[in-house]
Nucleic acid binder design. Structure first.
Lengths: 193, 193
DNA sequence: CCTACCGATCGGTAGG
DNA sequence: CCTACCGATCGGTAGG
């Protein structure tokens, strides 16, 4: 079978896998080229710089998180139901793009200042979505004793740290992980005093 | 004031700070040397290799986690009280050694295979401490509906992700963070069905 | 702890 | 997309 994926996309895919395993700085352009049966310099017919490749991976991951979760935050559902769906969407993005999620969490700080600031802003917006839903739950009496800030941090800590231990071939499916996490966290937000 | 810290310790401290900010591979031995007003080659009068420096930082961090938490796991207290103390100890280690904790979480995979395996074993032992305490709570009826594996992952996700957002000069003290986290998580383990 | 240096390799480019 | 190359810099060492 021929791989009909455009070369540029192959470079992003291969780079994502290698950056996630070895890290951005420990992966050389020649490593990526070798994986694609090319010479190092030939990569530059498709991309302009190593940092551009990192940027593409990180920016796409950030966009995926926001695009998956944002539509759920405003659904006409109780806060606990919205939070459950948002966490499931987050877990879905992480587990279906483990390599790129790992690069996103680990390597975004190696972007230049402007790009780093852009990612930081998206991350802040993303956090705020979770905080707001929990705050809704506090206001509605679903989570009477909860602190929205700590609640959001807890949800995102669980959802993010996932990239460290989740294995696609493991016993737990992404949906099962998300459901179990949501069960405990939502119970905590309901019962905490 | 003269700094009376032995040169070797100064190297570990400086390397910890720089590895945490720039990453292991993006930090050069000459970067570390410059910070200490030395020439690059002079570092090798005190250490044998760059990887040895990383190893010292990572191994010390792993030991600190285990030595702080292990004595608490077997205390004659209810599981929830033990878990609370263990999380507080964990948060204490992270927040009092933010640089080294960051290096521990981010850079341990760049160690050689033998050293990496050693750290992986310590991490597994550490996780088991938390799992066992939660299992005790399940058996004792404190956490009747909880899953020990997911509970431990939740505690450690929150405790580990901390290195990403905790700021020593922020509004929340380490003790306050640990207490709030424990409140929500323990409530969740108690109330989940 | 410094000077001076080693071989290796890096990201990126010119020219085809 | 390859060949051939650029200047820069890497981790580490010899000799003092």
């Amino acid at each position: 079978m021929m791989d009909t994926t455009p070369r540029k996309e192959q470079i992003f895919q291969t780079a994502g896998a290698m950056f996630s395993r070895q890290g951005y700085h420990a992966t050389t352009m020649r490593d990526i080229a070798r994986e694609l049966n090319m010479q190092g310099g030939s990569l530059y017919a498709h991309i302009d710089s190593k940092e551009d490749v990192l940027w593409e991976i990180v920016e796409r991951a950030a966009a995926q998180f926001l695009e998956s979760v944002r539509p759920l935050a405003g659904l006409p559902l109780p806060a606990s139901a919205r939070l459950r769906r948002m966490l499931a969407a987050h877990v879905d993005v992480v587990t279906r793009n483990l390599d790129n999620a790992t690069v996103f969490f680990h390597e975004w700080r190696f972007l230049g200042p402007a790009r780093r600031a852009h990612i930081a802003a998206q991350r802040d917006e993303y956090e705020a979505l979770f905080r707001r839903v929990i705050q809704d739950g506090v206001a509605a009496g679903e989570f009477p004793g909860a602190d929205a800030r700590m609640g959001a941090l807890l949800v995102l800590s669980a959802g993010n740290w996932l990239y460290q231990w989740f294995r696609p071939d493991g016993a737990l499916s992404a949906a099962a992980v998300a459901a179990q996490m949501a069960d405990v966290i939502i119970a905590g937000l309901r019962c905490v005093e």
